[in-house]
Amino acid sequence: MSLVELKDIKAGYGGAPILNGVNIAIDASDIGVIVGPNGAGKSTTLKAIFGLLTVTDGSVTFAGQDITNSEADRLVPMGLSFIPQEHNVFTSMTVHENLEMGAFVRRDDISDTLDEVYEMFPDLKAKRRQNAGELSGGQRQMVAMGRALMSKPKLLMLDEPSAGLSPRYMIEIFEQVVKINRAGVGILMVEQNARQALAFATKGFVLANGQNRFTGTGQELLDDPDVAKSFLGG
């Protein structure tokens, strides 16, 4: 049984559907990477899983339970966590408060998880009393990841975590993603830097026009001449 499974998802914002039958399956041990051209429905797929837009057809299951069109306050306690691409920190709140908000659904002691996150991102510990709005783009992304990890997710979904970051931060974020995955958290991410991301992906999904075009391991997609030609810039 997959950790999360999308079967023939169709979804949109009320007008013409953006997703026209997307199939994705991820295990807890997987790093799944969704790549594809602009407007292919990559981010929309993540939002559809997280109930941020209406799924009109198909089903989403998480750990065997149907979660199609569920709201976030049910999904987060179940073990899903989502990092939006933009506006993914509370700018007027301190780093520490941002992390606390990630643990809003938890009623148990969160200090161990806090320590883990600060250990993972030592930069944040030094800045924990600063407002997240005052941090650099890379540090904000770390706050966003830390916030998402505070709920102890089983599946972490990231929407273009490297967007707008310098190569140094991009590498650090990717390294942390791999580390989080090794700790037993399934990863599903959308990435523009397709080559770098597919290099460590255990599953790759190429979307185009709201449908799966290619599916395979990251290495298979990188080696596929068609994928390379059409979607990875030759």
């Binding site: 941020l52 306050d73 999904l75 987060v76 939006p84 506006h87 509370f90 709140m93 990630g102 809003f104």
Partner: peptide, 16 residues
């Protein structure tokens, strides 16, 4: 405060 700051992210964080 989180919801006043960023309602979408508050929702995504599971804030009721």
């Amino acid at each position: 405060r989180a919801m006043a700051d960023n309602p979408d992210l508050a929702k995504v964080s599971g804030i009721n």
